[in-house]
Each structure stands twice: as C-alpha cells, then as structure tokens.
C-alpha cells in the first residue's frame, strides 16, 4: 500500500465526520455566536497564570524592597532580603518575557515558525520552573529569616540561633531531594495526580528534556536536508 492509497481512507473519515455533527457542530455554533467557553482555552489559562505570577512577583518585590530599604545596614537581614528581592525581580522578568512572547504570536502565521517560537517559550517556562523548585530550599531558609522579622519583629538568629536557621536550609534541601527521588521513581499514586505529575516533571527535568526534544524536532523539520 502506498501513501496515495490512504487518501481513500482519509476521504472516508472526512465524510463520516461531516455526518457526525453533534458536539462538533455545537462547538461551531457556539464559536459563531460568541458564546464559546473562553475559559477553557489553554492559551488563556497560561496567560492568566503569567499575569498572576507578575502580580505576585510585584507584591513580593515591593514588600521585600521596602524591608530591604529599612534594614539595609543590618547585614544579617539585608543579605537574605536582597537575595529574595533579586529572585522576585527575576520571576517578574521571566513572566513578562513569556507574556510578551505569547502576545507576539499570531496563530495565522506559518506553522513551523509559530511552533518554533512556542517551543522556545515552553523551554523557557520549563527552565524557570525547575530553577524555582531547586532553589526553593534556599528561598524557604531566607523567608523564615525575613518574614517573622518583617511582620512581628522576631529576630530568628537570636530567638532560635544559627543552627536552627541552618537546619531550615538542610530541611528544605532534604525535602526537595526526597521529592526529586520520588518523582524519578514515579509511583502510581504520583502519576494519578495531574498536579504531582506536573511538579515531578519540572523537578526532575523531564519537562525540560521534552521541550528540548520538541524544539529539536521542529528545527530538524525546518532544515532542508
């Protein structure tokens, strides 16, 4: 059998799809009447998440920034606050970069070029997520210094001592390492939950690998050889 013989099968399917109607035609009617459930759009969801990340980042940068300005001379508080501030600004920059990238995408453009740009954005997102998850133990250890001090004036260095602060960092690293190990083994209960699976894929770098692989596939499709 040749590729051209499959055209008959393709036409058979096309005719059957035309006759099926039902939900497919309903979707067309909804799209035409403007009542389509726009909240189900995947792109819209991604944009909402990015806007949320920008808003959360701005709030964090402002709060930590004002704390930093207030305690700029106290190194043991200014140091952690400066790192947190930098992270908040980086998070905003990455989210803005993705949002601008998405806004510039016209789905009416050539398929390969549009998919290439989407692939690059997916890779950027996967990398940002992985870095956030891996650096979370450090962020956690810094947060437990800055937040109690900023909100209640509690100096954790004096109240609990340096070993407690170091212990927090060690606990965070242990939790992330254990989570990564678990995600690599990928037990059934983890695969059953979409959220845990998503978290595991980000943490182990599986999402980065998949995004890189997809981007390579697009690049090789573009190449004339």
């Amino acid at each position: 059998m040749e590729l051209d013989d499959l055209k008959t099968a393709w036409n058979d399917i096309g005719q059957r799809l035309e006759r099926m109607d039902g939900a497919l035609r309903q979707s067309l009617r909804e799209a035409k009447s403007g009542t389509l459930d726009r909240t189900r759009s995947k792109l819209r969801f991604v944009r909402l998440v990015l806007w949320y990340e920008i808003a959360a980042g701005v709030v964090a940068a402002l709060l930590v920034g004002s704390y930093l300005a207030e305690h700029a001379r106290t190194m043991r508080f200014a140091g952690p606050a400066a790192v947190l501030h930098l992270c908040a600004i980086l998070a905003i920059a990455v989210a803005v970069r993705q949002l601008v990238g998405l806004a510039g995408i016209d789905y009416g453009g050539p398929v390969v070029a549009i998919q290439h740009r989407l692939g690059e954005l997916r890779l950027l997102r996967a990398r940002a997520n992985r870095w956030l998850l891996i650096s979370s133990p450090l962020l956690w250890a810094l947060l437990v210094i800055v937040v109690p001090h900023g909100l209640f004036g509690l100096d954790v260095y004096r109240a609990f001592g340096l070993p407690w602060v170091a212990g927090n960092l060690a606990l965070g690293i242990a939790v992330v390492t254990a989570a990564a190990g678990l995600a690599r083994r990928s037990p059934a209960w983890l695969r059953d939950s979409a959220f845990l699976r998503w978290l595991g894929d980000d943490l182990t770098g599986r999402r980065i690998a998949a995004a890189s692989c997809a981007l390579d596939e697009i690049t090789s499709f573009e190449a004339e050889n």
């Binding site: 393709w10 399917i13 096309g14 799809l17 035309e18 099926m20 939900a23 497919l24 979707s27 067309l28 909804e30 799209a31 035409k32 403007g34 389509l36 459930d37 726009r38 189900r40 759009s41 995947k42 792109l43 789905y107």
Partner: peptide
Amino acid sequence: RGIVFKLANAYCRAREERDHLVQEICLQLW
C-alpha cells in the same frame, strides 16, 4: 468546516478531547 473536523480528528482520537480541540480551534480562529 471540514478542515476543523478533519484536523481535530487527526490530532485527537478520543471524542471528548476532539470536541475540546474543535472548540479551541474555533476560538482561535475567531
């Protein structure tokens, strides 16, 4: 409209997923 039906079917075989994709395509077209 045939384009939408055939494309959705080429990329999604399960009925529910296919209907969802048809919606998404219509929305992006609009």
